[in-house]
Design a protein around this nucleic acid. Structure first.
Length: 835
DNA sequence: AGCACGCCGACT
DNA sequence: GTCGGCGTGCTC
């Protein structure tokens, strides 16, 4: 009987394809297979094997699986099913979802390779006349024929070349890719060139390294070395009969020459061994610090103890439950996670812990290592692909009990799941802002539900979604209201910048209050953090004569001035120009720089406090991975007095000597046309104020704003989360925004707004028709707030409703009915931002 | 996303 | 007549 496999292929927006399973080949769910797609052969992942063709599939089009890559599952079955849920819920293709769940280096792809057939055009069957002509008596200037000649020259002497290699060489000779492609097609048709398919890449990519080990004669005879250096090296080897890596030997001063000499004399041998790329390696120096951290927190506070008792009892029940751990900043949530995780591990079940993008510092890794030893793995975006690959395979082999990682770690191949922790569950980095647009927290909850595991969502400022679920009794609410050691929360002072402008003029950046406070800290040898959630020097360059601002040619935003580079740059598409001497519109020669960014704040503080040791942390100063860690380490060692930066510095490390946090403008973001603007502001202010006073001295936060009466700012100063929740929920309910209703955003891109609006209007109408009016409300379309982005005009509409299944079905139906515009349409289910 | 196909203006 | 630039549609 013919059997069919449903296969997810890594092609965007494409659903699973059906293939015939060759006779005698058995594929399991989660196994990788090579399958033909169009003219290519790609790696896919088996979702299902069935004895019948799925409905709606034309049997005559079904091809056979080319090759089975894995005899057993590569992705565990539950992870495959989780990816299927993601594709269905977030309205993306199965290929998009499965790609997100795959570890690095999972894909093998075929690449056509070419070689000369040895035949001449005339002798080849079906030889192409035109080709023969040009090969014969060409006068020159025939670029296509020239391209064909170059191809044949490259393929001379029986060489077989992959397409990318061939196109690369031709490009060097000045042949554009398109022309080269055409030349290849023509030569193939003429039978002069044969194409073969070759596989590219590997199914896994482990790293091996050379080890030197003592040979049996050396071990038995106590052999004598002939030189002092060889004797020393041999001594080391005899002490380590298991072998020593060459890199390690080099560190110990044993050169390659000495090692080679030992090998020549038959006393040592070289073997290649698989080694783990160790993401903890950099943290090795911090092991002590990790031990200290683990020790310092040995005694839980009463509050922590009672929270642990409740959470522990839930975990012991070993069923799906969600707890929301609402703990003020500095209340010791991490310690609760650590103990709870240890308890679940002791009961023989495994733990998955999700953290936001930047939170995982080497110190945290060291603490984890110290608690869980070798049985902890990291899946973090700051790791190299190789490290992530190795960690993934350790987890897959069952060598790991605890996985700590960012968003994508929710797909970690961990079995026997007992506990899922989502730290800082409100953090927006959990939502992926490209396809598949999934939310790590929400996928984690689904995963736990299916595994019968417990979930702990932790935050000082829970998302409205989670807190509402707790209010409704769907989640268990566990609160930590006091900071550890009963440290008081930072005293927050609001500075009304309107008053400041009236007193000091309109150019004030650092208010008198903040200036004075920074001066005090410098005098006392304490540290300060100054935050402004906007990078660059000035947010706009403006002509004083005509009022025109420098705009991005591709996006509907003004360009940000970066003084160091003396360029105006678009923060969306990275377009950059030198700032001209005069206004491009009217020729006016006086240009003004308005709107403050971090670069400006840095300049202001450096000018105001001579000799200040200051570092700036934003995307402009932090380029490479690990760089932020270096700056934060210097800050922790107190080589730096003041840290200026964007929200990058609002989260993460604790700095005991920081007693002051300044916020240059709490209003950045409040002006955005985004329904979550107030929530973001409240969260950011609360989190950043929590940075102050982690040591023995009480912290102080000074927040500058033009709207001291705005509820998100006012309530953040008292850290009154519940009051904020009530107030914000009233707004959400009145506007039918989440979490009072479900929301799907649809953005349409087109070369003109007219066109974008026309397509969006059709899709919006289709959506309206596809859902019952009671279930689905369609708002719009209208030009998106960012009406132009990277050269595209953008129109947007929303679908809202209480029934998320009906809502999704309506949007899915509408989008599926117009495949011709698929490439221009972006669907975002549960969007975090609607810009 | 690739990749092929087919249409059309440019050039010989 | 080709060449080559680009929009369109499909992938079991």
């Amino acid at each position: 009987m013919t059997r069919y496999a449903s296969v997810a292929v890594p092609v965007p927006a494409l659903d699973a394809l059906t293939y015939v399973l060759p006779e005698g080949v058995d594929a399991v769910r989660g196994a990788r297979v090579l399958v033909p797609v169009g003219t290519r052969v790609v790696t896919g992942c088996v979702l299902e094997v069935a004895g019948t063709l799925p409905p709606g599939v034309d049997g005559s089009k079904v091809k056979a699986i080319t090759e089975l890559v894995d005899p057993e599952a590569h992705l565990p079955g539950p992870v495959v099913e989780l990816a299927q849920w993601v594709a269905g819920y977030y309205l993306c293709g199965m290929g998009d979802a499965i790609s997100a769940a795959m570890p690095p280096f999972s894909w093998i792809e075929s690449e056509p390779a070419y070689r000369a057939s040895g035949q001449t055009p005339s002798s080849a069957a079906g030889g192409d006349l035109a080709l023969g002509d040009t090969r014969g008596g060409r006068l020159g200037g025939d670029r296509a024929a020239e391209a064909r000649d170059l191809v044949l020259a490259q393929l001379g002497e029986g060489a077989t070349l992959g397409r990318s290699a061939l196109l690369g060489r031709l490009a060097k000779s000045g042949v554009p890719a398109d022309a080269a492609r055409r030349a290849l097609v023509a030569l193939q048709r003429a039978g002069v060139v044969d194409a073969v398919r070759a596989l590219r890449g590997h199914a896994t990519r482990f790293k091996t390294t050379a080890f030197l080990l003592p040979t049996t004669p050396a071990l038995e005879a106590g052999a004598v070395a002939s030189t002092p250096k060889q004797a020393a090296a041999l001594g080391r080897l005899l002490a380590n009969p298991g072998g020593i890596a060459f890199t390690e030997l080099a560190r110990e001063g044993v050169s390659r020459a000495v090692a080679t000499a030992l090998v020549t004399r038959g006393l040592a041998a070289v073997v290649q061994r698989r080694v783990e790329r160790d993401p903890f390696e950099g943290a090795a120096a911090l092991q002590d610090e990790g031990r200290e951290a683990a020790k310092a927190a040995v005694e839980p506070t009463d509050e922590q103890a009672s929270a642990l008792a409740r959470l522990g009892a839930m975990a012991d029940a070993a069923v799906f439950r969600v707890a929301l751990l609402h703990g003020v900043t500095g209340s010791g949530k991490t310690e609760v996670y650590r103990r709870l995780a240890a308890r679940v591990c002791a009961a023989g079940r495994r733990v998955l812990m999700l953290v936001p993008e930047i939170a995982l510092t080497p110190a945290v890794a060291a603490t984890l290592r110290h608690t869980f030893g070798e049985r902890v793995a990291i899946q973090h975006s700051a790791l190299s692909e190789g490290e992530r690959h190795d960690q993934w395979h350790r987890i897959r082999r069952g060598e790991v009990d605890v996985v700590v990682g960012t968003r994508s770690a929710v797909f970690a191949p961990l079995g026997s799941l007992g506990l899922v922790i989502v730290d800082e569950e409100h953090d927006t980095s959990y939502k992926q802002d490209e396809t598949p647009r999934y939310h790590g927290r929400d996928v984690a909850i689904v995963r736990a539900q299916r595994a019968g595991a417990m979930v702990v969502l932790g935050s000082a400022t829970p998302s409205l979604e989670s807190f509402q679920n707790a209010r409704a009794g769907r989640y268990e609410l566990v609160s930590l209201t006091r900071r550890v050691m009963d440290r008081p929360l930072a005293a927050v002072t609001l500075v009304n910048m309107r008053d400041e402008y009236a007193a000091e003029g309109p150019d004030v950046i650092v208010s008198r209050t903040l200036r004075h406070a920074v001066g005090e800290r410098l005098a006392r040898g304490e540290q300060a953090v100054v935050m402004l959630n906007r990078r660059g020097y000035a947010s706009a360059v403006l002509c004083r004569a005509c009022g025109a601002t420098m705009e991005c040619p591709n996006c509907s935003v003004s360009l940000t001035y970066h003084r160091r580079a003396h360029r105006a740059r678009c923060h969306y598409c990275d377009y950059a120009v030198a700032v001209p001497g005069a206004c491009a519109e009217c020729g006016g020669e006086i240009l003004e720089y308005t709107g403050v960014g971090t670069e400006r704040v840095e300049a202001e503080l450096v000018a105001g406090f001579p000799g200040i040791r200051l570092a700036r942390v934003d995307r402009d100063t932090i380029r490479r991975r690990g760089e932020i860690t270096r700056v934060l380490d210097r800050f922790a060692r107190r080589d730096i007095d003041v840290l200026v930066g964007t929200q990058m510095i609002a989260k993460g490390h604790d700095f005991p000597a920081v007693t002051l946090v300044g916020v240059i403008s709490a209003d950045v973001g409040l002006g955005l046309a985004d329904f979550r603007a107030a929530e973001r502001t409240f969260q950011l202010l609360t989190q950043v104020a929590g940075r102050a006073g982690r040591g023995d001295t009480r912290g102080e936060a000074i927040v500058q704003t033009l709207y001291p009466e705005h509820y998100s700012i006012r309530l953040a100063t008292t850290q009154d989360y519940e009051a904020f929740f009530e107030r914000e929920m009233r707004f959400r309910a009145s506007m039918r925004y989440p979490p009072s209703q479900w929301l799907i955003s649809v953005v349409v891109r087109a070369p003109s707004m007219l066109e974008a609006m026309a397509i969006a209007r059709r899709l919006a109408d289709d959506t309206r028709r596809a859902g019952a009016p009671a279930d689905v409300r369609v708002i719009g379309p209208a030009p998106a707030p960012l009406s132009r982005l990277r050269g595209d005009h953008r129109a947007q509409f929303f679908a809202k409703g209480l029934d998320r299944h009906a809502l999704r079905a309506a949007v899915r139906t509408a989008v599926a009915s117009r495949p011709e515009v698929r490439r221009q349409v972006t669907v975002d289910v549960d969007p975090l931002s609607v810009l």
